[in-house]
Design a protein around this nucleic acid. Structure first.
Length: 600
DNA sequence: GCCGTTTTCGGCCCGACTGTTTTCAGTCG
């Protein structure tokens, strides 16, 4: 059995190859290529193994024919002969040092040589010992200062290994928005924006970075450092500061002057690949880009000649591009589209007309979790959000504890309750009464059958089907299981389609080709579940669905009233997948939507 | 080794920091 490689492991291998080439003074651009391939893998939003399974390795930026074939060998045999060749003659221990900040290829090699460190398993310990014994400062090119730094870096690395999990997007966004509103209370603040992966609304976030435009940096920094939830100040300087929050998360603030704020935003929002591509494009047009602005190449290094941009829009327009929404900035075709003026008209939160996956507290006697809010409360909340319909989709009644007849009884009671709500809504004063829909989230049993009897399905307006058990199935079986569950005419939606839990578990494997085809042919919809640690369908699969014209719905999977506010994160995932309004079914007004459910 | 709006050959992102090798290489984001 060949070992399975995670993205992190693959990134590490590619980085090691780059380092090996560097020590051996290989081609500078080849080194760059491997380095780029490594970060590309590290930041990929889907598993490289899956891309390989689907024969789509070269869709990843920085992976071309050569590296793709090396990775192919890796997945098939567990090793790559070419890589072994490149690393031959170098101490394996040196590659362990590459994860320590401040140590690059050359330094790692030199340390291994001079300190005679060979065993990768004990390399870090040996290095730490050498530093403590003062053996590093005497090596040529090192000094007391660098020895101290290495020691500190090892400490930090050891700590970093234990903690540091990436935050899920809604969590990071909530922390950031609080700080943004706090900063807006400072008079000197002209503008505030989040930066980096947070601004791009990536599903998991490493650090929180925030930008402020101001004429008086010191005033803003002083204000920032008085933020009530600070545990300690890590760093402060004239152009920014870093703090540690009580919750253990770090927040970096960057200050810029208003007249050059656009270039700064553009630079720090990234992504790195997007920026590199943009700079290459600019070079061809005779310009050099930086966080300070755009410099015509004919003015070498002359900082006076940098063109400043107050707004990002103008920065992009200057280069002949349409402004690109941050969610698209991953160098996956958005720059070409911006040049051709064919960027998608992305879905907006206001386009959403209903939420189709809500768990109320209706006593449905399920074996899963129940919601906390009553149907009435949810309906009022839905009105607040401007929705035209709400779908109540409690989990099916537990199969083990009820006879089929009892299940039917419970479902009948639920239907009566919903009919009652709709009746009273119509009597209240409102132009378009919000409509309550009688849905259900039904377990897909391991054999692909549904958790309620046929007679129960007839009582429903529609059903969501989801996998909640038996995740460990092979790809073919799981695909068959899910497709047979989707077959029934009342079943419209596949809930949280990959089953992934961010930071917790990978999803199950599916033959997406088949799933997409089936959904397209039979008019089934894939859910983009906005639950914080699901955000499932993932953005790359949304993009694929959009390309194939498979329709989706965005739902919150709410179990309480506040959860209905999570919709914006589902919308963010859809936007990252290039979805427009008409890719998403629940943007339809009720009048149109009900036709799809064959409701009168 | 990657990649394509002046290229399938011949280019390849930018600026800052740091320590130390007094003029720059290595590393990082």
């Amino acid at each position: 059995m060949v070992k399975e490689f995670t993205n992190k492991e693959i990134a590490k291998i590619l980085k090691a190859v780059a380092a090996a080439y560097e020590v051996k003074k290989g081609d500078k651009f080849k080194i760059m290529a491997y380095d780029r391939a490594s970060t590309s893998v590290e930041h990929a939003t889907s598993e490289i193994k899956d891309l390989w399974d689907d024969g789509k390795l070269n869709e990843l930026p920085g992976i071309g024919a050569a590296i793709a074939s090396h990775l192919d060998e890796l997945f098939r045999t567990g090793r790559v002969r070419h890589f072994e060749e490149v690393m031959k003659g170098l101490p394996p221990a040196m590659f362990e040092f590459l994860s320590i900040p401040g140590i690059g290829a050359k330094t790692a090699y030199k340390l291994c040589q001079k300190l005679k460190i060979k065993n990768p398993k004990t390399a870090l310990k040996e290095l730490e010992r050498a530093a403590k014994l003062g053996k590093i400062r005497i090596i040529e090119g090192f000094g007391e200062e660098s020895e101290k730094k290495i020691l500190e870096a090892i400490e930090a690395f050891k700590k970093g290994q234990i903690k540091e999990r990436r935050m899920v997007l809604p969590y990071a966004d909530t922390i950031a928005q609080e700080i943004v509103s706090y900063l807006l209370n400072c008079k000197a603040v002209k503008r505030v924006d989040t930066l980096g992966s947070l601004k791009r609304m990536v599903s998991t976030i490493g650090d929180i970075d925030i930008a402020v435009a101001t004429e008086s940096p010191q005033e803003v920094i002083d204000w920032f450092l008085k933020y009530p939830k600070i545990k300690k100040v890590i760093e402060k300087g004239p152009t920014g500061a870093s703090i540690l929050l009580e919750n253990g998360r770090q927040v970096d603030l960057r200050i810029g002057k208003p007249e050059a704020y656009g270039a700064m935003l553009q630079y720090f929002i990234g992504s790195k690949h997007h920026n590199i591509h943009l700079r290459e494009l600019a070079l061809k047009k005779g310009f050099s880009l930086s966080e300070y602005g755009i410099r015509p190449l004919k003015f070498k290094k002359d900082k006076q000649k940098i063109l400043e941009f107050e707004k990002e829009e103008d920065f992009y327009h200057f280069l002949g591009l349409d402004w690109i929404p941050p969610e698209l900035r991953e160098d996956s075709g958005e720059i070409e589209a911006a040049l051709n003026h064919t960027l998608p008209n992305l879905l907006k939160i206001d386009d959403i007309k209903g939420d189709l996956h809500i768990h109320s507290n209706f006593p449905i006697e399920t074996s899963h979790d129940q919601g906390t809010a009553s149907m009435e409360e949810v309906i009022r909340k839905g009105e607040e959000l401007g929705y035209e319909y709400i779908g109540f989709t409690e989990h099916n009644p537990s199969i083990s504890k009820h006879k089929p007849k009892e299940i039917i009884e419970i479902l009948k009671r639920k239907k009566e309750e919903i009919d009652k709500i709709n009746y009273s809504n119509e009597k209240r004063v409102r132009n378009i009464p919000i409509k309550a829909l009688n849905g259900l989230e039904i377990d897909i049993k391991p054999n692909g059958t549904l958790g309620i009897p046929e007679e129960g399905l007839k009582l429903l307006d529609y059903a969501i089907v989801s996998v909640h058990t038996s995740f460990k199935m092979n790809r073919e079986e799981m695909t068959k299981r899910i497709l047979s569950a989707l077959e029934h005419s009342k079943v419209k939606i596949l809930g949280h389609p990959t089953g992934r839990k961010l930071n917790e578990r990978e999803g199950y494997e599916l033959d997406w080709e088949k799933v997409f085809d089936f959904c397209l042919k039979k008019g089934k919809w894939l859910e983009i579940n906005a639950w914080p640690d699901r955000l499932d369908l993932p953005d790359v699969l949304v993009r694929e669905a959009v390309k194939r014209k498979v329709k989706m719905v965005i739902c919150t999977d709410s179990h309480s009233l506040e959860h209905l506010n999570l919709m914006r994160y589902g919308v963010a995932v859809a936007r990252r997948g290039w979805a427009e309004k008409n890719d998403i079914i629940n943007t339809l007004p009720y009048k149109e939507f009900k036709k799809l459910l064959n409701l009168g």
